[in-house]
Nucleic acid binder design. Structure first.
Length: 274
DNA sequence: ACCGCTACCTGGCAGC
DNA sequence: TGCTGCCAGGTAGCGG
């Protein structure tokens, strides 16, 4: 599911469903998802008996606040959280289950098993990886044009690669980067330091607007199945370039093309993006 | 500091 | 119906 708008949608949905529930036990079926503490048995012991008090988000990370600990989780490519009745059978791709005392459970499903979970003592999560290396969210007041332009000035990387760098701005992924670059009229292969202040400003605004609008729409749903929580996103209807190769550009009618930039599939209108 | 490559995993799909 | 290879909303770690 995972760029900022999808993670935010999951956060809001989950909050309605699991707040103030107490964890009775945790089942772990794929150890590699658990990154901290190293031993999954310790993970289980830490979280047992804890009440879930809030769910937050930074970039693409979900932060589950329990009484004494925080759980930081990244969904990577296909991770999903859902709340179910404990009597329902466990699907093939469910790898972690948080059993609550009320007979419901929070399940983590992930076909590719790329997702991660870290536990920290309350408050400590902000001082360590992975959260410590994140830049501001796109709509955070500290994500200013001055900040962004200064970052761009320092690097010769391609602009697409910089937008994907979570330490510069947190939450954009392959879909929204392509959309933001299109909105700003900038080609993904431009050298970051060669952007003018005005172009940096346009791109900063385009990035923020794209993310804000996608959050309003509940994110983008492509390829992924409905997980029963009703959080089907609608932003896919607003996509202008992502997945639109060989269709006419909304601006000029010329075909959108697909290329590889920094190893990622990249969608661009060569006429509108310079 | 950068790039490209590999790894982590599985499944869908195009092409033969 | 296979099989093969490529692709996928992500990121860390490696060597050059």
């Amino acid at each position: 599911m995972p760029e900022l708008p999808e993670v935010e949608t999951v956060r809001q949905t989950l909050k309605q469903l699991v707040l103030n529930k107490r964890v009775k036990d945790v089942s772990i079926f794929w150890d590699n998802i658990i990154k901290r503490p190293q031993d999954p048995n310790d993970f289980r012991a830490w979280i047992q008996g804890q009440e879930l008090q809030d769910i937050n988000r930074k970039g693409k990370f979900l932060i589950f606040h329990f009484e004494d600990i925080s759980m930081v989780s990244h969904l990577r490519m296909e991770g999903k959280f859902g709340v179910y009745n404990a009597s329902l059978p466990k699907p093939k791709h469910t790898h972690v289950i948080f059993h609550f005392t009320d007979g419901t459970e929070l399940r983590y499903d992930d076909v590719r098993k790329f997702g991660t979970m870290h536990l920290f003592e309350k408050g400590q999560e902000w001082n360590e990886k992975p959260l410590i290396q994140l830049g501001p969210d796109p709509f955070d007041p500290s994500f200013t044009t001055e900040y962004f332009y200064a970052k761009l000035q320092k690097t010769s990387r391609l602009i697409k690669s910089v937008l994907l760098d979570q330490s510069v701005v947190a939450g954009l992924g392959n879909i929204y980067v392509d959309e933001a670059l299109y909105k700003a009229g900038l080609h993904p292969e431009r050298i970051a330091k060669e952007l003018t202040y005005d172009e940096a400003s346009r791109l900063k605004e385009a990035s923020t607007q794209t993310i804000v609008e996608a959050v309003k729409q509940g994110g983008t749903t492509i390829r992924s199945y409905l997980n029963g929580q009703g959080e089907m996103g609608m932003f896919q209807q607003q996509l202008k370039v992502y997945g639109k190769e060989n269709t006419g550009c909304f601006g000029c009618g010329n075909p959108i093309i697909k290329l590889k930039v920094s190893g990622r599939g990249t969608h661009v209108c060569p006429r509108c993006q310079k």
